[in-house]
Nucleic acid binder design. Structure first.
Lengths: 194, 194
DNA sequence: GCGAAAAACGAACGTTCGTGCTTTTTTCTG
DNA sequence: CAGAAAAAAGCACGAACGTTCGTTTTTCGC
């Protein structure tokens, strides 16, 4: 990897960390330059536009998310264990994000009314993630862990909701019961699916 | 109401509408002045600081929320019907917010890491809203609609999660199934509580 | 180690941001 | 209706925003 690509990576790493705290719009060229020890113009040249920086930041965050949440879970045996791994990894990952929260939750709210490539990218990746959950539930049905008439898309939607509830309780409300509540809700979701 | 207070009200009305679309931070003194036909300095004099404007915007939004969601529901007979009214009003109100989404959801993500009076105010009101839900569930237990050993705080947490899931599916994903999914999840929540 | 290519810098641009002042206009009260 | 009080405007400020451009420094292939 050449020097340029290396710096590029470093910038994106910092951008993801910063965005988790201040949101996508909060990642300003100036502050990002300061944090990386680069000049504004030097940093800017790597991306060509703020919009592109935002998309690349989301892309970098997605890579990390897949590597630490999705891929490990997909290595578990299909069925309820894999479903558990998905949710468990998700919650653990969210809690390990330093001071910040889940960048995707933050971006979802920030971009829901902002047409453009950043929104398009986020929606696409969220859709993929939703489908992974739904398919994983379907595999659990196939394995006999879940009842045959389960609505897997509804299951994915509900799982997603429980994560959002967890995120809200932990991040805004700073409720120490956030995680146990989320886990209780998840267990109930599993029971209803069996 | 004098002229001053009237203008004050008009500004806040516009601020709430604008914040629902662009977020709290997106409500800039300049754009707000343009939308209300005032000068920047003239508008600014009403609030003294941007921070105070944000708090007042949240306060105005809270008033509207209570008037169109909470109060009508509390006029229903205690029990499961009131619980239904809470969720129903909430979902309907969220869908009727014009182009924007729920300001509280947007602010929750925006302010979760931003220490200050705006955050404090939001957390306080969210806490109150959470308590209203939990107490309403308790009244349903008392009325015999819900089982006696129901964890009412968990119920409130779950209800909240389902709203967040609905909001996410509708606003970011623009999923036409968002509302039926949320309603299905809510019905399941009720069934589990009985 | 030389020279081309890539990377980073420094300075400036036009805007917009929130926030002070002072002055003018409008509203309310006696 | 006059005069006080309130409201709004006008103007300016320093800072930060994204972006452009020309120059300097660093990296890398030969």
């Amino acid at each position: 990897m050449g020097k340029g690509a290396e710096t590029h990576e470093t910038i994106l790493q910092e951008a993801v960390a910063l965005a988790s705290v201040a949101g996508l719009e909060g990642v300003t060229i100036g502050t990002l330059a300061t944090h990386t020890g680069l000049s504004k113009s030097g940093l800017f040249a790597h991306f060509g536009s703020k919009e592109n920086l935002q998309v690349e930041t989301l892309r970098a965050a997605t890579e990390r998310f897949v590597a630490s949440v999705v891929s490990p879970a997909l290595r578990k045996p299909a069925g309820i264990r894999r479903v558990r791994a998905l949710f468990d990894n998700w919650v653990k990952w969210s809690g390990s994000q330093g001071r910040g929260g889940c960048l995707f939750v933050a971006s979802a709210v920030e971009l829901d009314d902002q047409e453009g490539p950043a929104r398009d990218f986020l929606v696409e990746k969220q859709r993929e993630w939703f489908d992974v959950i739904a398919r994983t539930a379907q595999r659990a049905v196939d394995a006999g862990d879940f009842r045959p008439d389960l609505d897997c898309e509804q299951f994915a939607h509900d799982l997603y909701s429980h994560f959002l509830g967890y995120h809200h309780a932990r991040r805004l409300m700073r409720d120490p019961k956030a995680e146990p509540r989320a886990r209780a809700a998840f267990e109930q979701l599993l029971r209803n699916a069996q």
